[in-house]
């Protein structure tokens, strides 16, 4: 018996993709099959945040989205996230050891980027609120929070340097 399949056209990490996918697929499953492997399959209940991607610019848990519902829309995963903020957050996670097993890391970094794009100078409470939909089963939250705070400081320092008048 053939399963109902659907034609899915979406923009995935800045590439136009057309695919024939199982009509029962979740967005996380469809994009991983299309090569975007940074987003992870975790709980499939919307609790853990490992599958976080940006859908039309908004962070979403892609296990809660039917692949069919993403037709005609734009998906950005960590692999397609290439801004200066994204690069700074990535490096800060390495510098501050913001991971142990790494399973939650892509989701954590994506929500951190989303936070820093909206607020340049988040408080610790802002950071903890931003990652409140992402679980780290290694429980390395303090290092994750410290990595995001470090990225925010670096970005603020860079912005200050750019804004200061040239005196020489």
């Amino acid at each position: 018996m053939s399963r109902p399949s659907i034609d899915l056209a979406l923009r995935l990490d800045h590439r136009d993709v057309v695919a024939h996918v199982d009509g029962r697929a979740l967005l996380i499953e469809a994009i991983r099959d299309l090569g975007a492997r940074s987003a992870r399959i975790g709980c499939l209940t919307g609790d853990c945040g490992a599958c976080t991607v940006l859908l039309d610019g908004q962070p979403v848990k892609s296990c809660l989205v039917l692949a069919a519902a993403a037709d005609g829309r734009e998906v950005v995963t960590l692999e397609g996230s290439a801004s200066a903020i994204a690069e700074t957050v990535r490096r800060a996670f390495i510098a501050k050891k913001g991971f142990q097993c790494g399973y939650c890391t892509s989701g954590m970094i994506l929500v951190a980027i989303d936070l820093l794009e909206a607020f340049a100078t988040p408080t610790e409470a802002d950071i903890r609120s931003a990652i409140s939909g992402n679980l780290c089963r290694c429980t390395g939250y303090d290092d994750i929070v410290s990595a995001i705070a470090d990225a925010a400081e670096q970005l603020s320092a860079k912005a200050a340097t750019r804004e200061s008048p040239e005196i020489f």
Binding site: G46, D47, G49, T52, Q58, P59, V60, K61, L64, V65, V111, D114, L115, S129, A130, I131, S132, G133, N134
Partner: peptide, 10 residues
Amino acid sequence: VTGGPQIVGQ
């Protein structure tokens, strides 16, 4: 509401 910014937006 709990569930993080993702749930707040979804």
